[in-house]
Design a protein around this nucleic acid. Structure first.
Length: 417
RNA sequence: GCGGAUGUAGCUCAAAGGUUAGAGCACUGGACUGUGGCUCCAGGUGCUGCGGGUUCGAAUCCCGUCAUCCGCCCCA
């Protein structure tokens, strides 16, 4: 019987792991420059954490979450996103007692039971950040700027920055009422999905891509026209910040987001290069979430980057060389195998990526293997040279070679590194 | 959850119901016992995704199932 990985879950092979390392390294470096620090939270949490943060009516919770009972019958869930866990950890560890802002980043797998597609998997990876304690839109602006620099580092271009405001506890109810009245007149013309959404969560209707619905909803009122004074000011000064930093953006009143905890600012960064799964990063502000979990009233904002999608873009755009062994140690002649082993250990202690023959191969075959491994240098431990305390070195690309003592060999390798 | 396309060697693909299922690349060994790439030779390259059915006979037709891809939905 052949055992395969579960649907939508894939192996990341050494072949492409270097791209992941490259992206992760850039994220760590950059985020730490902005004083975000890494936090690691469990992959498994009480299911209720996500029900209460993301929202019970959302698709994520309703049909995409991996939920099951553990051996004691507790309802647990694999995390479908990162924010809820970080908020939980922030409260549980009383991190709000530390000076504001508290800034965290994380990277790791998330799980959603979705139908797999290009750029969409059941186990996927996100790099995310969360910033707690500051209510001014300078926080969101900093997040966007940091994202922009992140993508610049990776040489990813042609991204669209779209922003919107969802208002707050004060202004959203009046908008919702208004939208309901408006939609009530048109509901007969909407698609089946939208008719369902209309009763469940009217805001979701705005996101529909069906041509007919789009047309019917041309004149739908938008939330940004119903913002309270505070929210409007917040949104305007957010845009001002973006302009100061020369970030090109588009206000897209249709961005609704699939998680209920967002307030005020939301944003999406999209690309046209990945087909239907076009969001590479998204996030927003969630000023009520910490408090709703029993923490002190704490404004907060964050974003998440879709790792697989960024990897895909990197494959198309940048050439990142995978790591290859640097030196191959070959041997020829009586008793040289042991001497070769000593040399291998020595080179490895000196930090060179070293490979060697593990079986008794002809020198020809050893060189053949070295060639296939694409190593830069071969050191041959040969009987004749060994008598003179020398080794033969060979630079594979040029085919040049010579003899040298060990100190010189190390020097040559260091210079060639 | 809905609609569509596709599953043959590690990879890219042939074989239009009829011999023992093929080609290129890759892989392993040899020609070459102290020198890689080139060439030549030899060779695993395989439950034709899996399970049924139709047929004298199925990679080929039908049904189911699983997987992948595309679209919807949703999102990162």
């Amino acid at each position: 019987m052949k055992l395969n990985s579960l649907r939508g879950m894939q192996d990341i092979l050494p072949e492409e792991i270097h791209i992941w390392h490259y992206i992760e390294k850039n994220a760590r470096e950059l985020f730490e420059i902005y004083n975000f620090r890494e936090i690691r939270t469990p992959l498994l949490e009480q299911a209720e954490l996500f029900l209460r943060s993301i929202g019970e009516d959302t698709d994520i919770v309703e049909k995409e979450m991996y939920v099951f009972n553990d051996k004691k019958g507790r309802k647990v869930a694999l995390r479908p996103e990162g924010t809820a866990s970080v908020v939980r950890a922030y409260i549980q560890n009383s991190l709000f007692n530390n000076p504001s802002p508290q800034k965290f980043y994380y990277m790791g797998p998330m799980f959603r039971y979705e139908r797999p597609q290009k750029g969409r998997f059941r186990q996927f990876h996100q790099i995310g950040v969360e910033s707690f304690g500051i209510s001014t839109p300078t926080v969101e602006a900093e997040l966007i700027l940091m994202l922009k620099q992140f993508f610049e580092r990776l040489n990813i271009k042609d991204l669209n920055y779209e922003i919107n405001s969802l208002g707050c506890k004060k202004c959203r109810p009046s908008y919702r009422d208004n939208l309901f009245i408006y939609l009530n007149e048109k509901v007969a013309n909407l698609c089946n999905d939208c008719q369902r959404r209309f009763t469940r969560n009217p805001l979701r209707v705005l996101d529909c891509k069906a041509p007919n619905c789009k047309n019917t909803l041309k004149d739908t009122p938008f939330i940004i026209d119903f913002l309270c004074d505070d929210c409007r000011m917040h949104f305007l000064s957010f845009q001002k910040e973006l302009e100061l930093m020369k970030i090109k953006y588009v206000v897209n009143p249709k961005i609704v987001r699939g998680l209920d905890y967002y307030t005020r600012t939301v944003f999406e960064i999209t690309t046209t290069m990945l087909g239907a799964q076009n969001a590479v990063a998204a996030g927003g502000r969630y000023d009520d979430l910490v408090e709703s979990f029993g923490g002190p009233k704490t404004p907060a904002a964050g974003f998440a980057i879709g790792m697989e999608r960024v990897v895909e873009l990197c494959k198309e755009i940048t050439e990142i060389e995978p790591k290859r062994p640097f030196v191959y140690v070959a041997f020829a002649g009586q008793g040289m195998e042991g001497e070769a082993k000593k040399l291998v250990n020595m080179l490895r202690k000196n930090g060179f990526i070293t490979e060697t023959a593990y079986e008794n191969l002809s020198l020809k075959n050893q060189l053949k293997r070295a060639d296939k491994l694409k190593v830069e240098w071969v050191i041959i431990v040969g009987e004749e040279e060994f008598k003179k305390s020398m080794y033969k070195w060979k630079r594979m690309k040029e085919g040049t070679q010579g003899e040298a003592r060990i100190e010189e060999i190390l020097k040559i390798l260091r210079e060639g590194n």
